[in-house]
């Protein structure tokens, strides 16, 4: 009997859903452009992922090109440079999670503590501005600053030191990535945390103040716990792009002297796609591999956050 009821419910549900959609058609109409955008620009192109298992022929198109099974992966996995690029990408981006990720949070906390609104706005503008510069510009500035004849070395030399080769030093490359990235993006990323902070009930601060809590205690016990869901979501999202972050930056800041520490997976894909006769199947195989790893990491980060009692991305 219960099975019959469930079955009938099951069949009734779409009708109910359709009725609900019809009833709220005005609202659902507003959803349409977004839905169409996703279908056309996000889900539609996913058909192209099949290229990873095909020998792409432009005249036959994506669907007409012959299937080659795992042949592209056979070549990819045999390439030592590919594996090096995978580990390097993980290594660099794990560093980003450790060094870069906390910076916008810290910056937002500091900005929130400023008591002069005008000064706060000026600082916020200064910190946000670099976000609007392209990596081409930023890297040109950095190269001028850090070259042997650049500003930094001029200061070092004027203080009696000897010039340091920042741009060709493999040890300095990774810190340079983090520093430039923090300079460029921390201000912009802090906006989302500032927005979260602005949503905190002021009564909590007043109550804490009455109880004699210091500013640091208020930050630790009110501000941080309140923005923690936002921090968690941002952390999960960043973990989900751990295999694909920072192509523009690395492409513009790297050179042959630091190639051993700068060829990330994106750079590898660029090299095999644009520095050799194009083989889109091969490039797509690498891209798909990257996306799968990203997805696995995203799900793992989400589950991890939930296991630790936090909120995740998925219900």
């Amino acid at each position: 009997m219960s099975q019959v009821l469930q079955t009938s419910k099951h069949f009734q549900r779409p009708r109910g859903l359709a009725a609900a959609i019809y009833k709220n058609r005005a609202v659902y109409t507003l959803l349409l452009p977004g839905l169409i955008w996703y279908l056309v620009f996000a889900y539609g192109p996913m058909g192209g992922l099949s290229l990873a298992f095909k020998d792409y022929r432009a005249n036959l198109g994506i669907w007409g090109s012959p299937w080659v099974g795992m042949q592209n992966y056979h070549y990819v996995f045999r390439d030592a440079a590919f594996w090096r690029s995978v580990w390097r990408t993980l290594f660099i981006n794990l560093g980003r999670l450790i060094f870069e990720f906390p910076m916008p949070v810290i910056l937002s906390l500091i900005l929130n503590e400023l008591r002069m609104p005008r000064y706060k706005k000026v600082l916020q503008t200064i910190f946000t501005f670099p976000h609007f510069l392209s990596w081409v510009i930023v890297s040109s500035v950095m190269i001028n600053f850090l070259s042997v004849e650049g500003l930094v070395n001029s200061i070092v030399k004027s203080l009696g030191g000897s010039a340091f080769n920042f741009l060709g030093n493999t040890t300095a490359f990774q810190p340079m990535l983090y520093i430039t990235s923090i300079w460029k993006s921390a201000g912009w990323s802090a906006i989302i945390y500032l927005a979260a902070i602005s949503g905190i009930d002021m009564d909590q601060y007043e109550a804490a103040q009455i109880d004699g809590a210091s500013r640091l205690q208020r930050i630790a016990h009110i501000t941080l716990p309140n923005i923690m869901p936002t921090v968690t979501v941002m952390f999960i999202l960043q973990t989900g792009s751990i295999m694909s972050a920072g192509f523009d930056q690395i492409f513009n800041l790297s050179n042959v002297a630091v190639r051993d520490v700068s060829e990330t997976l994106d750079m590898y894909i660029y090299r095999i796609t644009f520095q050799a006769p194009p083989d889109f199947g091969f490039s797509m195989a690498v891209s798909l591999f990257r996306s799968v790893i990203n997805m696995v990491l995203l799900v793992l980060a989400d589950r991890g956050a939930k296991l630790m009692g936090g909120s995740g991305l998925f219900a």
């Binding site: 070549y75 060709g168 493999t170 042959v256 002297a257 190639r259 051993d260 090299r271 095999i272 520095q275 050799a276 006769p277 083989d279 091969f282």
Partner: peptide, 22 residues
């Protein structure tokens, strides 16, 4: 051949990278 097409060396870069390497 497919094998030849997979060679993506930019030779001047390769030579420079080798002499610059520690």
């Amino acid at each position: 051949s497919p094998a030849r097409d997979r060679i993506s060396f930019v030779y001047p870069d390769e030579y420079a990278a080798l002499i610059l390497k520690d």
